[in-house]
Design a protein around this nucleic acid. Structure first.
Length: 293
DNA sequence: AGTTCCCTGAGG
DNA sequence: CCTCAGGGAACT
C-alpha cells in the first residue's frame, strides 16, 4: 500500500481534495472524510442544490433545505458511510462504487453526473457530489437516533476497533466462506472486495475457508492482517484512490500496490505462481493457491 | 448460497 | 454491437 502522487502539471500544484476514481472502501472513505473535514469543518452551509432528487434515500428535500444556515461540526466515517455532521441534523453519504466529491470552483462546468452541490460561507469553492453509476445514496436525518437508522444499525463493529476476542467470537456466528463473511457489513463494517482479497492474502488464508471453522491461530492471523492492511491503507490515504484533482483541475495518478487484487495471472509476489481468480459469492476473488490455504 | 438488479463506461 | 465490473439489497 504505497500509492504515490505523480503531478502531471506544474510541480507547485497542490491536491486539495480527493476525487475518488476507485471503489471506496474503509481507507478511501476515511481519506475522503479527512479531506472534507479540512475543507468544510466550521463553515456554514449557505445553499444546497439538489440536481437529482432520487439520490436522497431517507429524508425529504425539505430536510435538506433545512440544513441551510447550519454550521458543519464535523465530517466522519462509519463503515463505508461518510457522515457530515451539521449539529442536530446530519447528511450521510454512501459512495458505493463510483461516488465521489469535488471541491470545485463554482465557475467550473458542472458535469452531468453531479447530483448534489453544497455551498458554504465563507468560501469561494463549492462541494459537489458526483456518481456516474448512481448507485450511491444520501440520507438526511436528525442527529438524535441516527445510529438507529437501518443503514447504520445494520453495521458490525469497525475492523480497526474490534479486539481479537470479540472478533473470534463473531467469526463463529457467521458461517460461510471467509471471503463472503469479510464482505458482510454486519460482520465488520468497511471492508470491500479489494481489501478482503488483500487481507486474505496477507493472512495466508484461502478465501473459501470456512469462517466459523477457523482455528484460533488462523483467526489471529486474519485479525492481525485485517488491522495491518487497513491501517497501512489508511496511512497511505487509500490505495484505490487513483487520482487527485488539484487546484488547476489537473489529475495526477497513483500507482497501486496490491498483492493480489486485479493481478490475475501475474506472479504472486511471494512465490511467483500466477495469481488466481475465482468468483465467490458473486464477487471476483484473487488469491494465490500456494500461499493461501 | 446463488442470482438478479440497479447503472454506465470501458474494453473486446 | 456485446459483455463485464462492482456494493449491497432483494430476491429465489
Amino acid at each position: 500500500m504505497r500509492p504515490q502522487f505523480y503531478p502531471t502539471a506544474a510541480v507547485d500544484t497542490v491536491p486539495i481534495l480527493a476525487y475518488n476514481a476507485g471503489m471506496p472502501e474503509l481507507p478511501e472513505v476515511e481519506s475522503i472524510a479527512a479531506s472534507l473535514r479540512r475543507a468544510i469543518r466550521g463553515l456554514t452551509i449557505s445553499s444546497i442544490d439538489v440536481r437529482r432528487a432520487a439520490l436522497l434515500r431517507r429524508g425529504r428535500p425539505a430536510d435538506l433545505k433545512a440544513l441551510v444556515q447550519r454550521r458543519v461540526i464535523d465530517v466522519r466515517r462509519r463503515g463505508k458511510h461518510l457522515i457530515l455532521d451539521a449539529g442536530s441534523r446530519v447528511l450521510v453519504f454512501h459512495l458505493r462504487m463510483t461516488g465521489g466529491f469535488q471541491w470545485a470552483d463554482p465557475a467550473a462546468p458542472v458535469d452531468k453526473h453531479t447530483h448534489l452541490i453544497l455551498r458554504f460561507k465563507p468560501g469561494r469553492r463549492e462541494l459537489r457530489f458526483h456518481d456516474v453509476r448512481k448507485f450511491g445514496f444520501l440520507l438526511c436525518l436528525p442527529a438524535a437516533g441516527l445510529e438507529a437508522c437501518p443503514e447504520l444499525s445494520a453495521l458490525g463493529p469497525e475492523p480497526l476497533e474490534i479486539g481479537f476476542d470479540a472478533f473470534f467470537t463473531r467469526l463463529r456466528t457467521h458461517r460461510g466462506r471467509l471471503k463472503s463473511v469479510l464482505l458482510d457489513q454486519s460482520f465488520v463494517a468497511g471492508i470491500g472486495n479489494i481489501y478482503a482479497d488483500e487481507i486474505l492474502f496477507e493472512s495466508g488464508i484461502h478465501p473459501l475457508a470456512s469462517a466459523a471453522g477457523l482455528s484460533r491461530a488462523r483467526a489471529s492471523r486474519l485479525w492481525a492482517a485485517m488491522r495491518t492492511v487497513l491501517a497501512k491503507a489508511v496511512a497511505a490515504g487509500g490505495s484505490t484512490i487513483r487520482s487527485y484533482r488539484n487546484a488547476d483541475g489537473e489529475v495526477g495518478h497513483f500507482q497501486d500496490d496490491h498483492q493480489v487484487y486485479g493481478r490475475t495471472g501475474e506472479p504472486c509476489r511471494h512465490c511467483g505462481r500466477p495469481v488466481r481468480r475465482k468468483v465467490i459469492g458473486g464477487r471476483s476473488s484473487h488469491f494465490c493457491s500456494r500461499c493461501q490455504k
